[in-house]
Write a protein that binds this DNA or RNA. Sequence first.
DNA 1: TGCATATTTCGATAAGTATCTATCTTTACC
DNA 2: GGTAAAGATAGATACTTATCGAAATATGCA
Lengths: 186, 186
Amino acid sequence: MLLNFFKALAHESRLRLLGFVAEREHNVQELAARMALKEPTVSHHLGLLKEVGLVSMRQDGTTHWYMLEPKTLSRLAKSLLAPSQLAALKGIDDQPTNDEKIVRNYLTPDGRLKDFPASRKKRRVILVWLARQFDEGREYSETDVNTLIERRHHDRETFRRELVGYKMLARKGGVYRRLPEENWQP
Amino acid sequence: MLLNFFKALAHESRLRLLGFVAEREHNVQELAARMALKEPTVSHHLGLLKEVGLVSMRQDGTTHWYMLEPKTLSRLAKSLLAPSQLAALKGIDDQPTNDEKIVRNYLTPDGRLKDFPASRKKRRVILVWLARQFDEGREYSETDVNTLIERRHHDRETFRRELVGYKMLARKGGVYRRLPEENWQP
DNA sequence: TGCATATTTCGATAAGTATCTATCTTTACC
DNA sequence: GGTAAAGATAGATACTTATCGAAATATGCA
């Protein structure tokens, strides 16, 4: 979602972090040193940037190497140029379907799923809700997908399988991608 | 500055406001009603959006009509695509000139200018500092220029004249624009 | 001049989040 | 298994800013 990108970019520390990882890969210690911040703080900011896909991470032993994902930035830039995005901004949270009630019924107060509906209709509503939490056009590793699902339900396997089954997510060459809504199975 | 754009865009209310003013001109009351917020709140957000040039305002009687400035948005998008911007991000606040000391000497604790230096050298340093507070590529009305100067010193006339004199700002067809630094007179 | 209306500004409160220290987790190596 | 190193997470505190009601400002009109 557009808002999350701007929130991620709206802090001087994170913009500077992006500058460093645009230059070359950095690990957390290096970044903490160059920015004169403590490691947990840097880790926190990197987490937010990673969440929206602006940086990626590869692990080598206990060291985590972060680098910029320029694709994400250029996708963001292009979406700013598309006038359709703007028109949609005003309704940023009004998809006035009454599917919302169904979803709300399955959510705990902290926004996690109580369980997985038995009826096919409701099951699809839940999966739609979940699928919309993926960004279109972004690539997700299996770990990314699991992380996102686990924010809502511990059973990542079932949900991942169902999302693919309904053609909401597709796996190709080891990466997952959200499919356009018109492809989603009924 | 890039950071200010992201800060302006990093709030749901302001994104929704942009959506409305992208659709058509709106006044403050209309926006307050459509967003279910009070007028002072809307006014506050519009002020921030106006500050970075994302919206413009025209006044008709006591009514203020706000509309989107799509140019600003597309300039922002383009600057995101330019790789040079990114490299610069890490040094977001290190222009390690010792002109900074001169500037600091002329500033009150709240960041306003005590007075206007007598020596030409120092005067130029102050004007450079002031000129850099304008965005390159953006158009400023005379009122915009005055507002920006008055944040630093009440004597808007003198500073405006000097900025133009040093070719840091140029006036063309009723609008002001920041000139590239290589044009600035010594 | 004085009143009415639209907006902005001010001051207080509440919500959000950046940063730190301390602790927990993961990985490598003996 | 035990220990060390790198990073992540949790909890506390401080800073920033969103929001509101009340007061101030600006414009138009009798």
